[in-house]
Design a protein around this nucleic acid. Sequence first.
DNA 1: ACCTCATGTAATGAGTTCATTACATATTAG
DNA 2: CTAATATGTAATGAACTCATTACATGAGGT
Lengths: 129, 129
Amino acid sequence: MMSPDTMDAVFQALASTTRRAMLDIVRNEPGCSVGAVAGRFDVSRIAVMRHLSVLEEAGLIISDKRGRTRHLYMNAVPIQMIHDRWTSEYSALWSGRMLDIKYLAEQRRAQEGDGAETDDIAHKKGEPG
Amino acid sequence: MMSPDTMDAVFQALASTTRRAMLDIVRNEPGCSVGAVAGRFDVSRIAVMRHLSVLEEAGLIISDKRGRTRHLYMNAVPIQMIHDRWTSEYSALWSGRMLDIKYLAEQRRAQEGDGAETDDIAHKKGEPG
DNA sequence: ACCTCATGTAATGAGTTCATTACATATTAG
DNA sequence: CTAATATGTAATGAACTCATTACATGAGGT
């Protein structure tokens, strides 16, 4: 099961048009090099490398270095996990209905399967004024 | 059609466990107040308000102020749009296959239907060294 | 060995996010 | 009117993102 932090990382990685474009390239040219990707963008090679790192840390890209060249591959697993989780959680929304939906909070499922802490129903603090 | 920037905003808004938890609450308690949401989290009311603003700017929440109370509602449209776009774009991935997929870059479709600029195949700059 | 190529690391700086406290506005109840 | 309630704004600061240039490493070709 995917931890909330991992989910944060995946959404964060996808929250950039540039990074989504990079993911498209890697998906369409499996095994392509860092330089090949960098050659398509109007930013420095280092900036591209950092974007690719973000994608790789989110698990959306897997890389494999042979000789002096790093080969990049897309990994569909995190996207599938998000899709699965969200289709179950927002199933009524996907189909466009919006009826009475059973509440299955991400936190509750994380509690059952993941051992992760919940943010919901936390101890309130109160304002000073 | 959804612009790349809007898509960035939606993913960015979802890239936070706290904000996803807030969206869950609003979905399950349609018309709830800002204070009702704030009462469930261990951060200041102002921090909660800003999170809700992020969600609202991404179009994931719609609000409606009656008297001194702002009522919050979830808007499923951006999630549906992302789902539709991604299931067509990554359709082979959703089903778990991963065969030869026709390349339909987000940028290309944005060009056709949206008038938005593409980042892909941009003019390269080259490093100084 | 020497040079080039492909990638990676370090230091830096502008801009954004995310949290805080203090104060302001506006609506309802008495 | 006065007071409590609900939300909103302003100013601030720590931490992170995103881009840069300069330099370092390590593999391959001649």
